[in-house]
């Protein structure tokens, strides 16, 4: 990827180990979000059906609500706050678990990305947790922390900076050449404009 200014044809080598860009990361995030949403929906559905079956007595002809002490438990389990809490816990565990054990969530694995510590080591549990909490910091001011990836030299978002991590390509990433020629043209015209001013 060493393309000096003035060269017309870029030298395209593979980008394995280079910092991953915004679109790849957003796409990985979307895939993770879909997986999480589907899992939570299915889990909620199973819980609700089970609780309904127990409380209406469709299953064995006995309503669990009538058993002393069980009714309040069912009501508690049905509480939307509890479901919300469990969902939030699941999202946290999903990110922390996969980032710590595999260095990548399923979405990142599909897009060939991996989270590594800035020292090049594996990400620890604490860093995984910090990184997850950093998502909220990045999202709070109109998601600026996420968009920071676009202008940062190491392509780090605020959550990466907080946890001191990088997201890198693990595959022999190679930009699509047709696409690349267009973008290089735009970049060079930008550069020409900048230098003329």
């Amino acid at each position: 990827m060493n393309q000096t200014q003035g060269q017309t044809a870029p030298i395209i080598t593979d980008l394995q180990g280079y910092y991953a860009g915004f679109i790849s990361r957003v796409l990985a995030f979307i895939i993770d979000a879909i997986i999480i949403a589907l899992t939570i929906t299915v889990f909620n559905w199973i819980v609700w059906v089970t609780l309904d079956t127990l409380s209406t007595g469709i299953f064995l002809g006995i309503s669990a609500n009538k058993i002393p002490g069980v009714g309040p438990v069912i009501d508690f389990l049905r509480d939307s706050f509890l479901i919300g809490f469990l969902s939030a816990l699941f999202i946290l565990l999903y990110h922390v678990f996969f980032t710590y054990f595999a260095g990548q969530t399923p979405g990142k694995a599909l897009l060939g990305l991996r989270v590594v510590a800035v020292e090049g080591k594996r990400v620890s549990v604490v860093r995984s947790l910090l990184r997850y909490l950093g998502y909220f910091v990045s999202a709070a001011p109109l998601f600026i922390g996420f968009f920071w990836v676009l202008i940062d030299d190491q392509r780090q978002g605020w959550h990466d900076k907080i946890a001191r991590t990088y997201v890198i390509y693990t595959w022999e990433a190679r930009p699509d050449e047709r696409f690349l020629s267009k973008e290089l043209y735009i970049l060079s015209s930008h550069h020409r404009r900048g230098s003329s001013q």
Binding site: G21, S24, L150, R174, P175, H190
Partner: peptide
Amino acid sequence: RERTVSADTFLEGIA
């Protein structure tokens, strides 16, 4: 993946 890698660089250039 190839397309997203290209889009990464492209969007970054615009930003």
